[in-house]
Design a protein around this nucleic acid. Structure first.
Lengths: 268, 268
DNA sequence: TTGAAAGCGCTAACAT
DNA sequence: ATGTTAGCGCTTTCAA
């Protein structure tokens, strides 16, 4: 419970560090930041860097951000943290951001309009220099650059990243077709997920082209807003209780597939 | 690419807001923060709040944090963003944090020692008031409170949250046993995941108690550090190629299970 | 009832 | 080759 475990010393500031060295904070700052165009003898430089390491000086990113008007931080808006798709995308984003020296704030809004608004403002208030949204229905522009992954609103100032659903459908359906499947069941994504609509359209298109029939009795619709296998289980039950035979199932999301498989084991 | 899309005005500061009102910044601050013990006529209060709303005043969290030495931010260390278990935990953490008015930075380190060290320092440098680590091998204390979920080092100043693997094993194995399964295969977790060891011990214990035999030929070990179904696929292949029969499989992680099922479909 | 001043920790411009 | 000053945007004394 201790607020400051004693195995680690009180953090030291630039000021203390400077007076410890008998120097001016500015000089120290210049050296530690390798500011060019300032002639400082190597001896002094070394002395400063040594002391910084020794006293474990950690610059206050806060103060620095305030002064430089640069936070090196971006905000990420995501519907759900426990969802495989969202976090997969976040993971890639995170890699590149960290590599580029950026950090990120995450906020998850569960597709609730007011939270989307509230959190995006909070992210900006906390100094986010840009926003990345994933599967999130943004409704207006922002005073910073915004990139929307799987967002579908055309909004000035927002760059949309769209997936190639057409290609995905082709790969999926030709694969199943080549394996001989003709009776294919589908679990459509939830309506609140912004890609569901387009994805389904691509499936329908491609199915038509390669001669796979999409049967209403074999098409079910995910509805619940959860990320556990409970998502797919009841839907699969429904499919099985319909009595129609099928030899393959197309699902668009990990958890629904897991749930479906469980239902299959339990009932089929 | 515009740095500041014009559909949103230049952010306004407390200073501007105050002079717009013909007041002192301090007064405005006091009113907007509902500081007690300051008598200000209701009229003025209203005037201020109205103007704040109107000009869309967003206080700079940066400046405020610097001044108050309070960032309302905590840092979360996690091995992998794309992993179901980690993000499930993060999701719960995120909910509570946001509800309590906190934000969080996330950093993922892929179990690499140097990154764990580097990122935890960065989180502190960015003003994290506490750290939460998930499945992360911390090696020393920090100048802030730390909670470790599924961490297994006893370190002064670090609070460990441990899972009840014993209970999990009981639930799992008695369930399978009651369904009549006797030939059970197991996919052990990767060695770098801190819970793998204890979890397996519990399984072994409980299996012994309820009379389930754990056969080496039916026990395989996950090794790869990935979060896709590729994790389980080859391991299941190995299991199948062994030729030993089994009627149930215990896996400890979503993706390995998905991979295993795919292998089963393809080969079995 | 309100304003002025100081300062959180840092850095850029301007002296020395 | 180094130091001084001012100020990022805010809040908290203290004075008017």
């Amino acid at each position: 419970m201790g607020k400051r475990p004693k195995n680690n010393p009180e953090p030291i500031g630039l000021r203390k560090l400077a007076e410890h060295l008998g120097l001016n904070p500015a000089t120290v700052s210049v050296v530690l930041n390798d500011v060019p165009g300032r002639s400082i003898p190597q001896a002094t430089r070394d002395r400063i860097k040594a002391a910084a390491k020794e006293l474990n000086y950690q610059p206050s990113h806060l103060a620095r951000s305030l002064r430089n008007r640069r936070t090196l931080t971006i905000g990420v808006l995501v519907p759900e943290l426990g969802d495989g798709y969202h976090t997969q995308v976040m993971s890639g984003i995170g890699d590149h951001l960290m590599e580029a020296g950026y950090f990120y704030f995450t906020a998850h809004h569960r597709h609730r309009k007011n939270l989307i608004e509230e959190y995006s403002q909070m992210l900006l208030g906390r100094g986010a220099e840009a926003l990345i949204s994933i599967d999130t229905k943004l409704e207006h522009g922002f005073p910073v650059p915004v990139v929307a992954v799987a967002g579908h609103n055309q909004i000035p100032g927002i760059t949309n990243i769209v997936l190639d659903h057409r290609l995905a459908a082709e790969l999926t359906l030709t694969h199943l077709h080549s394996l001989g499947h003709r009776q294919i069941a589908f679990m459509r994504g939830q309506s609140f997920s912004s890609d569901s609509q387009e994805r389904w359209q691509s499936i329908v298109e491609v199915a038509g082209e390669i001669g796979i029939e999409i049967r209403p009795e074999l098409t079910v619709q995910l509805a619940r807003d959860i990320t556990s296998p409970e998502l797919g289980y009841p839907v699969m039950q429904q499919l099985l209780s319909g009595g129609k035979k099928f030899t393959a199932l197309v699902a668009f999301n990990d958890q629904s597939a897991i749930g479906a498989i469980r239902a299959l084991q339990d009932l089929g």
